[in-house]
Nucleic acid binder design. Sequence first.
DNA 1: ATTATTCTACCGACCGTTCGGTAGGGAGAG
DNA 2: CTCTCCCTACCGAACGGTCGGTAGAATAAT
Lengths: 191, 191
Amino acid sequence: MTTIMREQIIEAAAQIFREKGFHAASMKEIAKAVNLQKASLYHHVSSKQEMLVEILDQALDLLIERLQKVVEQPTSPEAKLRLAIQTYLVALADYSDLSAVMLLEHRSLEPEYHQRHIPRRDRFEALWRKILEDGVAEGVFDCPNPRLAVKSLMGVLNWTIMWYRRDGNLSAEEIAEQCSDLFLKGLIIRS
Amino acid sequence: MTTIMREQIIEAAAQIFREKGFHAASMKEIAKAVNLQKASLYHHVSSKQEMLVEILDQALDLLIERLQKVVEQPTSPEAKLRLAIQTYLVALADYSDLSAVMLLEHRSLEPEYHQRHIPRRDRFEALWRKILEDGVAEGVFDCPNPRLAVKSLMGVLNWTIMWYRRDGNLSAEEIAEQCSDLFLKGLIIRS
DNA sequence: ATTATTCTACCGACCGTTCGGTAGGGAGAG
DNA sequence: CTCTCCCTACCGAACGGTCGGTAGAATAAT
């Protein structure tokens, strides 16, 4: 069975969805990217919407799985948070098209799929919240509102898709380290 | 002269662009929102693209102006940063449609307008960077990479457009205060 | 009467999708 | 070995529909 063509199509779709947005991307363009006529796409894929759904599912599955592994590790909250940040940023960099589409294009999901997507996304955020709350429980984190702190952290990390470039002068790991320092230690110097 | 209808149209456009994205929004829908026929829009506006450009310009003008005033104030870097954060988040909340479109839809600008937009955006980021660099120069901020710190800060603040709701349980000011604390003091408790 | 505004009607272009058909490779029958 | 049959993969053409935008008549305001 040849799912390989399908994978290529999804990958091309992700890249184009990312560049132009879901609605601005055309089937013709996606077809061209994999050297097919647009009619031929429908042999491998049932609709444009299905491609979007698959991209979002793949991306979220991938991120949840990696973060889950980090959460399960028996380390200190600080080390766990640092590792989670690095894992996440590396994943965002490795699968930047998938991730960017997931983060930015989920509003183009038809209602039924959107409804299914949101709870999974919340589950993902809950993993982050657990890391922070464990730190609070152990008395090492000062975090009056973990929900807001998670939103803030997601903001820092997710926003990297707007400016991170693979050929830039900072690697994902370097960004992760500096972001971790900032988020953990803050900006102010204390003696 | 009746620029008032034009303003209503731009406002409606901003709201719909924000909800569905530029390409998914239709002139027909925008017209309906201001109780006009689609053709009538063109008496007040020359094209869909022009509306997008105007929205982005208005939003950026507004934000730059407010931040400029904060930067000019003769206070400590810490107070200035806190004020800047609050000013920015309040502006994002007050003009959430304009702001969200500016932050998310600038890729739909035609190349010529995009080219004009980017430098103004950089100028905006430079204002933030100045605040941080002044703090470093005065020895109160620990910030090895101000560019990255600004990106991080913009991430926290800009990402609020993804989840902030006017009728939520946190006001823009409350979010600003907690984000400021987090960004300045970090997560880790220090005795 | 003149101007400003909104209307109905329409245009060409393009959209996602479907359809009928075809090329070519493997499987089974003789 | 050959002939038939089917199946996957692909294509060109066309469909109904919507898009942004235009032309010009009708109406409202001054």
